[in-house]
Each structure stands twice: as structure tokens, then as C-alpha cells.
Computed example of a mutant assay.
Amino acid sequence: MSKASIKDIQKRQIDIRKYTMIIALVGIWILFSFLDKSGTFLTPRNMSNLFKQMAVTAVLAMGMFMILVDLHIDLSLGSLVGLTGGVCALLMYKLGLNPFIAIILTMALGVVCGVITGTWVNAGVPAFIASLGGMLAYRGAIMGISRGESIPISDAGFRFLGTAYVPKTLGLIIAIIACIFVVISAFKKRNARIKFGFKVKSMALEIIYLVIYVAIIMGFVLLMNSYKGIPMPIMIVLGLALILSFVATKTKFGRQVFAIGGNKEAARLSGIDIKKRTLQIFIISGLMAAIAGILLTARLGTATTDAGNGFELDAVASCVIGGTSLLGGEGTIIGAVLGALVMASIDNGMSILNTEAYWQLIVKGLILVIAVFVDIYNKKKGRTF
């Protein structure tokens, strides 16, 4: 089988996972709307809150995605969310720094923590142990510097990141631009595939797909506009997703990260600097954790010592549910974001149904185990998801 044919099959496998995720998400929404006798779940207000709630997990999942693709894991991300959110709040509350400067310094802290973990891993310490040590150290650090107290934030400019909404007219303009971009990209990709002799969908099927994509984009924006507009945290998530998707699929760095996850020894023999790439993915992971910490603190208006507790597990679950393989070398940023939306939908729906907290943990745990089992089973059998 030619290399082109193999890549084509792999691409179709990823597409199948992506569409399966969308179908599963719609199914979850329908289920909760049926169980919710108050009719709250599918209201524009609750959907807006749902998307705001998933933003932190989505940002963290994008960082975890890079780690998992490279066959590592970072258990420190949840604690790092708490530490960076707390440091950002302290910089503004105690030192009186400008929010912009506080955010820059907080992101720098995330990068430094990523460098520390990546350096330990490159030194031969298993990522599980290195990040476990970080998880404990970061949690202890935020408890120490905050003295166990919550840190309030009232700065309107900072709170804007977590609570503001995009003006409705601007939201529509962004949606139209996005639709135009999707259509142009689709036909450009189609022409390129035809030029190089690859199989393409029929024009009728291509148009149907485009209609669905455009309907999803416009439907989302119109739904958000029926409340207050697109939440600012979601705009940040979409911006980061576009950047990281480009990095993961269109750059030398991204291709090498996937190559390392797919076959580390082959990657080493082909001349890829594995230690350099490992350090870089942990830097990205630390940076994304810092951004998640900033968004969480901005949304809640306060930083607490237990902020981010267990978030690393939600991030792993989001990635795996979204199609990222724990065996490395496979997955997409968009899948990780969709996985985060699934996790947030389950949390939100069960909260509306007044389900006990322990049941929420049990359900998420079962979903994670099943998702990993399906991934490993399909890998062994050579099947698609």
C-alpha cells in the first residue's frame, strides 16, 4: 500500500472520530433535555454558561493533547492552574500590578514550570513521576503564598476575560467570515487533492458537508446572540485551537511531535531532536495551564487554594474522548476541544438534574475507562473508531 493511501486511511479514521464525537454530543444534549423537566438545559442562558464552563478544561486539554501525542503525561496541570491563577490574583491584589503585566508574568511562570518538568523528563525521570512531584509542589506553593486564604479580584479589565461577551453584531461578522473561510478552504483542499490524484467526495456530498458546517457556525452564534453574545472565554478557546491546530498539522514541529509519538526509535534514527521537542511540548503545556488558570480566576473573581483540583484528569478524559490515543501519535486539537465540551455537558446536565456530586465523578470515570478501552481495542484489532 502506498504512503498516500495510508495517509488517506488515517485521515478518514480521524474524520470518523470527529463526526462520532459530534453525534455523541448531540445525543447527550437530547438526553439531558429530555430528563430535565424544568426545560433549563437547552436554554440560551444555560448553553452560554456551559460554554464558559468548558473553556478552562478545553484550554487545559489542548496542552495535555501535545503531551499525550508524544507518549507522556502531565499530572501537574491541575495544580499549575491553581498556582498560576493564585499568583495572578496576588500580583494584582497584593502588589497592585496592572492586569496586563500580571497576565504576562503569570504566563511566564507557566512556561518556567513547563521547563522544569520537561527538564526532569529529559534527565530520565518518567513523566508520570516528574509531573506527580510538580502536582504536589505547586499545590503546596499556592497554599503557602496565599496562606490558605481566598484572593478576591475586582478589576473590571481582568474580569473581562472571563465574564464578558462579544457584541452581537461583531459575533455575526465573525461567523460570516468563518463560514467564508470554511468554504474557500474546502474547495482549495478539494482542488489540491484532484491535482495530485487523490480521491475526493462527490460535489453534491461536498456541498452537503459545507452546508452542515455553515449551519453549525451560524446556529452557534445565533444561539449565543439570543442571550448576551459569544462568551469571551470561548473566543479565546477558538483562537488558541486555531493556532495549535496549525502548529500540530502544518509545521515541522507538529509533524515531528506526532512522529515521536508514533515511533520514538524511528524518529530518533531519522534525526529528530527528541529532547528538544519534549522540552517544547512541556513548555506549551505549562503555558496553556497558565492561561487556563487566568481564565478560571477571571471568571470566578477569586483565587482559592483548591482551584484546579482534579482538572488534569478532566483534561486527559477530554483528550481521550476526543480521539487522542494514549498509545501516542494520534489525535486532533479539535477533538480535544469537543471532548472538553462533552465533559462540561455531562457536568452541567447532571448539576441541573441535582445529581449527587459522587455520581458525577463515577460517570466521568466510567466514560474515561470506556474511551481508553475502545482506543486500545481498536488499535490491537486495527479497526477504526
Results as ranks from 00 to 15, higher is better:
residue 336 A to E: 06
residue 324 T to E: 11
residue 313 L to D: 09
residue 317 A to T: 14
residue 326 L to C: 11
residue 317 A to Y: 06
residue 315 A to V: 01
residue 285 S to A: 09
residue 313 L to Q: 12
residue 338 L to F: 11
residue 332 T to A: 14
residue 303 A to C: 04
residue 289 A to T: 05
residue 331 G to E: 12
residue 310 G to Q: 14
residue 333 I to M: 13
residue 298 A to R: 05
residue 328 G to C: 10
residue 297 T to A: 13
residue 302 T to G: 03
residue 341 L to T: 02
residue 347 D to E: 11
residue 316 V to T: 10
residue 322 G to C: 11
residue 295 L to T: 00
residue 323 G to V: 07
residue 353 L to W: 03
residue 282 F to S: 10
residue 313 L to H: 10
residue 282 F to T: 05
residue 308 G to E: 08
residue 313 L to I: 14
residue 345 S to W: 02
residue 336 A to L: 10
residue 318 S to N: 07
residue 293 G to A: 03
residue 349 G to W: 04
residue 338 L to G: 01
residue 299 R to F: 02
residue 348 N to F: 03
residue 335 G to L: 09
residue 333 I to A: 05
residue 286 G to T: 08
residue 328 G to A: 13
residue 335 G to I: 04
residue 323 G to S: 12
residue 312 E to V: 08
residue 329 G to K: 07
residue 328 G to P: 12
residue 315 A to T: 00
residue 340 A to H: 01
residue 313 L to N: 09
residue 341 L to P: 07
residue 316 V to M: 14
residue 321 I to W: 12
residue 356 E to A: 14
residue 330 E to Q: 15
residue 313 L to F: 15
residue 287 L to G: 05
residue 318 S to K: 01
residue 323 G to D: 09
residue 292 A to R: 00
residue 297 T to G: 06
residue 284 I to T: 08
residue 341 L to S: 07
residue 307 A to C: 11
residue 293 G to L: 00
residue 327 L to V: 11
residue 302 T to A: 13
residue 294 I to C: 05
residue 304 T to M: 13
residue 326 L to I: 15
residue 325 S to W: 11
residue 322 G to T: 04
residue 352 I to P: 02
residue 292 A to S: 04
residue 321 I to D: 10
residue 317 A to R: 09
residue 323 G to A: 09
residue 342 V to D: 02
residue 322 G to D: 05
residue 309 N to F: 15
residue 347 D to K: 09
residue 324 T to I: 15
residue 316 V to C: 06
residue 327 L to S: 15
residue 305 T to L: 09
residue 291 I to S: 01
residue 346 I to H: 02
residue 314 D to Y: 12
residue 329 G to Q: 08
residue 352 I to R: 05
residue 342 V to M: 14
residue 333 I to N: 04
residue 333 I to D: 10
residue 303 A to P: 03
residue 339 G to S: 00
residue 294 I to G: 00
residue 331 G to F: 13
residue 341 L to V: 00
residue 292 A to C: 07
residue 348 N to E: 05
residue 316 V to K: 06
residue 285 S to P: 10
residue 331 G to I: 06
residue 327 L to R: 12
residue 324 T to G: 09
residue 306 D to F: 15
residue 320 V to F: 13
residue 283 I to P: 12
residue 289 A to F: 03
residue 355 T to F: 12
residue 282 F to C: 14
residue 284 I to F: 14
residue 307 A to Y: 14
residue 296 L to T: 03
residue 319 C to L: 08
residue 315 A to D: 05
residue 343 M to V: 03
residue 285 S to R: 04
residue 291 I to N: 00
residue 326 L to W: 07
residue 315 A to N: 10
residue 296 L to R: 00
residue 310 G to M: 15
residue 301 G to S: 08
residue 356 E to V: 03
residue 341 L to N: 02
residue 339 G to T: 06
residue 339 G to L: 07
residue 330 E to N: 14
residue 337 V to D: 01
residue 320 V to W: 12
residue 351 S to A: 11
residue 293 G to S: 03
residue 325 S to Q: 07
residue 343 M to I: 04
residue 293 G to V: 01
residue 336 A to R: 02
residue 311 F to R: 09
residue 306 D to T: 15
residue 299 R to W: 03
residue 345 S to F: 02
residue 290 A to M: 02
residue 327 L to I: 12
residue 349 G to M: 00
residue 345 S to N: 01
residue 288 M to F: 08
residue 338 L to C: 04
residue 313 L to P: 02
residue 342 V to E: 10
residue 309 N to A: 14
residue 321 I to R: 07
residue 320 V to Q: 10
